[in-house]
Design a protein around this nucleic acid. Structure first.
Lengths: 106, 106
DNA sequence: TTAACATTTCTAGTATTGTCGAACTGATTA
DNA sequence: TAATCAGTTCGACAATACTAGAAATGTTAA
């Protein structure tokens, strides 16, 4: 339950949800469109944080903060390659929160 | 998306989630047990707010506030009968948030 | 080696929010 | 009618959280 709260809190902020959707909606690092939620095909290994920053208007330090919250909630994983950090969604977290809301499960 | 944020915000508070689970977990007005999340069979028409108050330790004004937040998010409906207010979950809200997290839908 | 880039850490300010007490309204009971 | 019960409204306080600027770290390019 503690875990559910963490996930809900992490996603309950508009900016952070946008960041999450950006990471979730696009496996690659280019072509993601917030309006449609679509992207033109992703590369492997997650979304580059610098690309998220282009889509979500906020200070770098703010973005780092939001990514930390999402990571602490178990919603994303990050990986550094060179000077770029790539982020991707943790499927287990999605499954957990989906199960919480699924009418047949609960 | 605005609606999703409202729902997430409403449930992202421990006390409020407990209130929600209490209403959700028990269609009736008696026998709900927070520990197990079970109840001994519900009566029709939702859960009495006074019974929720017995299970969730907080001031009456606090409970009213939380119920308002849940109602504004579309998560519950309330109905006054006599001097007792009954609350029940809105299935549409659950479906909406469930769809948001369901891996096949999004 | 120097410069530019991506990201983080630290700090601080502002805004939001959870909580409650006191007073009040409406409904039931004695 | 008076008293009690279920909730609400209002106001205030403390805690949390979002945000960003400045400075620092590590990496790549010139």
């Amino acid at each position: 339950m503690e875990e559910i709260i963490l996930i809900l809190k992490a996603l309950a902020d508009p900016t952070r949800l946008e960041v999450f959707q950006c990471i979730r909606g696009c496996g690659g690092s280019a072509g993601y469109d917030i309006g449609t939620g679509m992207c033109d095909g992703g590369t492997e290994g997650g979304v580059a944080v610098c690309d998220v920053k282009c889509k979500v208007p906020c200070a770098p330090s703010t973005l780092t903060h939001h990514l930390n919250v999402l990571r602490d909630a178990g919603l994303i994983e990050t990986q550094k390659r060179g000077r770029v950090v790539y982020a991707c969604v943790r499927a287990e977290a999605i499954q957990k929160i989906a199960a919480f809301f699924a009418p047949e499960t609960k």
